[in-house]
């Protein structure tokens, strides 16, 4: 990548965006899980004529979201 900063003794400091350890972005992850797997559950319910896959999907999605947050933000 090009850089128009004058070449100096300073070393490259990586941005904190790389780890995206921003609490404000957590909501995007928390929404993604239930919506994705709830949506899949809704589709499965629609196809099979059942009712219980949607709530299972929402719960599994929540669990995955929280796991992913822990993995991204909580581990050293």
């Amino acid at each position: 990548m090009s850089s128009s900063e004058p070449a100096g003794p300073e070393e490259h400091t990586p941005g904190r965006g790389a780890q995206t350890h921003l609490a404000t972005d957590a909501i995007a992850y928390l929404l993604a899980g239930p919506f994705t797997f709830g949506g899949i559950g809704f589709g499965v319910d629609h196809l099979l004529g059942t009712w219980f896959v949607l709530p299972l999907g929402v719960l599994a999605g929540m669990a995955l979201s929280i796991y992913l947050l822990w993995l991204r933000y909580g581990t050293p």
Binding site: M1, P14, G15, R16, G17, A18, Q19, T20, L22, T24, D25
Partner: peptide
């Protein structure tokens, strides 16, 4: 501030090694 901060963090995240 938050809008621009998050935009920058998305840019930074996309450019990360």
């Amino acid at each position: 501030y938050v809008f621009v901060l998050l935009a920058a963090s998305y840019f930074g995240g996309a450019l990360a090694d």
